[in-house]
Computed example of a mutant assay.
Amino acid sequence: MARALDREYSAALMRASRGIKTASAEALRALGVHIGQNFLLDQLWQQDGLTTGELARRLEVEVPTITRMTQRMEAAGLVTRGRDETDKRVVRIELTPQGEALRDQVPAALDAVAARSLQGLSDEECRQLIGLLERVAGNLRA
């Protein structure tokens, strides 16, 4: 049977997670980006012209997920999808000028959400929280 503390922890973590996700979605929406698309943009900012397969591997999702995401992003003007010059079966994803222009704005918006979520905590408390969350993540990976 679960301890009361286990349930209290789970409930608090869920509230925090939901709050961060909601605030992040709102911040990204103001930039014309849907939650999750920021991860794909980040990969393209590091290396433009990746294939759908490469993006799927890097983001640890299935190719159809990348296909749907890039279709939406193309409709929004953030990326283009085109066939590879040497292998027409391969689709490459490239940033548009609009997608490239978000390179500084998306991280800044997410940093603002993080700062808001940590408001009132000292640097030491932030380090402690990060360390504890890393331990929780490690427990779940084990």
Rank of each mutant, 00 (worst) to 15 (best):
A30T: 04
A56F: 06
L44C: 06
A75D: 12
Q46P: 00
R58N: 12
R83V: 06
E26Y: 10
G19M: 07
A25K: 05
R18F: 15
A75H: 09
A30D: 12
R58T: 03
R18D: 12
T65H: 12
L40I: 08
A30K: 08
L31H: 02
Q47I: 06
D84T: 00
Q37C: 05
W45Y: 13
S24D: 04
V63A: 05
L41P: 01
T67M: 08
E74Y: 04
A76Q: 09
V79P: 00
R57A: 15
I66G: 01
E85H: 09
R18T: 11
Q43F: 11
R72Y: 09
G19A: 06
T67S: 14
T52G: 11
G32D: 05
T86W: 15
D84M: 04
R29L: 13
R81C: 08
T52L: 13
R68D: 10
G53T: 10
V63N: 04
G77V: 08
E85V: 11
L78E: 02
A76F: 07
G82I: 05
L50V: 03
A76P: 02
L28D: 04
E54R: 02
E62S: 10
D84Y: 03
A25Q: 11
T86F: 14
I66K: 00
W45Q: 07
M73I: 03
W45F: 14
I66C: 00
V63D: 06
Q43G: 09
G19H: 06
I35A: 14
F39T: 09
R29A: 15
Q71C: 10
N38R: 03
M69I: 05
N38V: 02
E62G: 05
Q47C: 13
D42Q: 12
E74Q: 12
V79S: 04
G77D: 10
V61P: 01
V61Q: 01
E85L: 14
G32F: 09
K21N: 09
D84K: 01
V33D: 05
L59M: 15
Q43P: 03
I20V: 13
I20D: 07
G53Q: 11
E26S: 13
L78Q: 02
E62Y: 11
E85Y: 09
D42T: 07
